[in-house]
Simulated assay, not measured.
Amino acid sequence: MFTADQINEAISWRHDFHRHPEIGFEETRTSAIIADLLEGWGWTVHRGIAKTGVIAKLGEGPGIGIRADIDALPILEAGKSDHCSTYPGKMHACGHDGHTAMLLMAAQQIAKLDLGGRSVTLIFQPAEENEGGGRHMVQEGVFDRFPCEAIFAIHNWPALAPGHFVARDDRMMAAIGIFEIVLRGRGGHAAMPEQSSGVLTAAGRLIPMLQEVPARRISPLETGVISVTTIHGGTAFNICPDEVKLTGSARWFSKEVGEVLQTAMEEITKAVAVAHDCTAEVNFISDYPPTINTPEHAATARRVAEEMGLCVTNPDPSMASEDFSFMLERQPGAYIWLGAGREGKNPGLHAADYDFNDDVLATGAEFWVRLVQDSLK
């Protein structure tokens, strides 16, 4: 479907995006390149959607939407390739540069199709990492302005070998809640701990108790996790601090489990604080909902993949989170994992030495073209 020259061109786009990573809502250079290319191929382009997003439409009437995320992460790259990040402290550690390049590659081919009274909408979304660009797009009424019968997205998946494809009928990615716990009490001299509150001791006991909550508060047939990931407190070896801060995240699929995790966290934290003569403040924010595919559209994606000769598998869902979930709450559709592992050293997503596998660019682009063709039938 694609010539060697077309593949090399897509690789050059990907490498350029990788050299110039832009984090959430700062993707001005990235979105300008995307918009200019699409306009050159005949797409009707809308810029500045959700601040730095781009939406392109081809044709009229009903049709499908395809989303690619375009933002990078605030990570100092440790890779040694000739296309490493030129922006210190920022890198494409999740493959959004590849997602963007494969959708552009497909867009160039889709522009040559006869859509026969139907349409295709491409959504180049900013700020997937942490900032919820998908939520912003939905809140801005993207699907009112650009109606789609169904919406699809691909994420590269280094845990699967190239040629493997996943589109589960329901659960794909978990919901996430972000929490901050602040323990406060009296500080004092380390030689006289009885004159101080035990905020550090409380923190030390609280961490395993919180991470044990899913095992004791929810059914083993359900899924949930609490991870404490940072602890900040104290200034010197001989001072008992008066404040300690813990942060982390909780993950779940069902709304009921999320509510149990939050309630248990608040109850246990306050009880531990009282036992150690201090107070506790718990701030819990439910951030992204779970990413749930509609069976009909997941089945369509699998059928198209099988027609391409891809190996369609059905592994367990991931407890990681994804803001495409906001779009799937609003529209039917499917989120897809495309195998992108490397032989030998194979860094995972968000690793400082991760680099998107260019060998799967053509596979992803071909899938998008075939999916569009299937939607025209």
Rank of each mutant, 00 (worst) to 15 (best):
L183Q: 10
N314H: 05
D169Y: 10
F179S: 06
Y354W: 12
R118D: 13
A127T: 06
E27V: 06
E266P: 07
L328N: 03
L160V: 00
A127S: 13
E343W: 04
D323L: 04
E149I: 02
L221H: 11
S31D: 06
W337A: 02
T279M: 07
N293Y: 10
G61H: 09
A203M: 07
A161L: 09
E194S: 12
V228P: 10
T121A: 14
A305I: 10
S81E: 15
S227N: 02
E140N: 14
R370G: 04
V312I: 00
E243N: 09
T3I: 01
G163V: 07
I7S: 14
N156I: 00
I75P: 01
G198A: 09
P290D: 05
L361V: 00
R67I: 00
D359I: 09
N346P: 01
D169G: 11
D16S: 11
D69F: 09
I226L: 11
A250T: 14
Y87A: 12
I64G: 03
L115E: 02
P193K: 10
V372S: 11
L115Y: 09
G134Y: 12
A320R: 14
A334I: 02
A93F: 04
N156R: 09
R370E: 03
C240M: 13
I33E: 10
V369A: 01
T291H: 09
Q331F: 08
L210W: 15
I218C: 01
V199I: 00
I154F: 04
M91Y: 12
R205I: 05
A159C: 04
D242W: 08
E129F: 12
D242V: 05
G42R: 01
P290K: 04
Y87V: 15
D82S: 14
I151N: 10
S286W: 08
N156C: 05
G187P: 03
C148S: 05
M319C: 07
Q6R: 13
E243W: 02
A271C: 06
A127C: 06
N283V: 13
G177I: 03
F179L: 09
G89C: 00
W368K: 05
P332K: 08
L38T: 04
T269L: 06
L210Y: 03
S85M: 07
V244W: 08
E140G: 15
S325Q: 06
N283A: 13
K51F: 12
L122M: 11
A351R: 02
M137S: 07
A202W: 11
A301R: 04
I336M: 03
Q195L: 15
H83N: 14
A127E: 10
E27W: 06
V369T: 00
T294V: 03
W337G: 00
H136Y: 14
V120T: 10
G24I: 06
P317C: 02
I66Q: 09
K377G: 13
A351N: 04
M319V: 03
F356K: 13
D374M: 08
I23R: 13
T235P: 12
